[in-house]
Amino acid sequence: MGRESAQQQTARIIAAVTLPHHKVLGAGDAFVLEAGDENEQEQLTLDLAKAVKADVVRLSNGICIILRD
């Protein structure tokens, strides 16, 4: 059992890239960028992820989050 918990990976949320209709109440240590439209959201997300060498996940509600181990 000890090995299982030692092998767990945790990712840290670096940022969330949202659209104007998204409601984000708090982001903890992460910061939130608001894009004007979906094209800008995609470009900002990719640029930021590349800059910090992180992974991107698009949530089912359309918010993009940038994660790093």
Rank of each mutant, 00 (worst) to 15 (best):
S5C: 09
A51D: 11
L19M: 04
L33W: 05
L48A: 07
T45K: 00
L67Y: 05
A27K: 02
A49R: 04
E38I: 06
K23H: 14
V32E: 05
V52W: 04
Q9M: 03
S5D: 11
L46Q: 04
E40W: 06
N61P: 05
D47V: 03
I65F: 06
L48H: 10
A49Y: 01
L19D: 03
G28Y: 02
E34T: 14
L19C: 08
G2A: 08
G36E: 14
H22K: 13
E34F: 12
R58M: 15
V17A: 00
L25K: 13
Q43F: 08
L19T: 04
V32Y: 04
D55W: 02
G62K: 14
E42W: 08
A16M: 06
V52N: 05
A49V: 02
A15T: 03
L25M: 13
A11K: 10
G2K: 13
N61V: 03
F31Y: 05
E38H: 08
Q43I: 10
A16I: 04
T10H: 15
G62W: 05
A30Q: 06
E40H: 14
I63W: 08
E34D: 09
D29T: 14
A16W: 05
Q8P: 00
C64Q: 05
L59G: 02
A30T: 04
I63L: 02
Q9V: 13
D47F: 01
G36H: 04
K53V: 09
M1R: 14
R68K: 07
K23R: 13
I13T: 12
L33G: 00
K50S: 05
I63N: 03
Q9Y: 12
S60R: 13
A6W: 09
K23S: 12
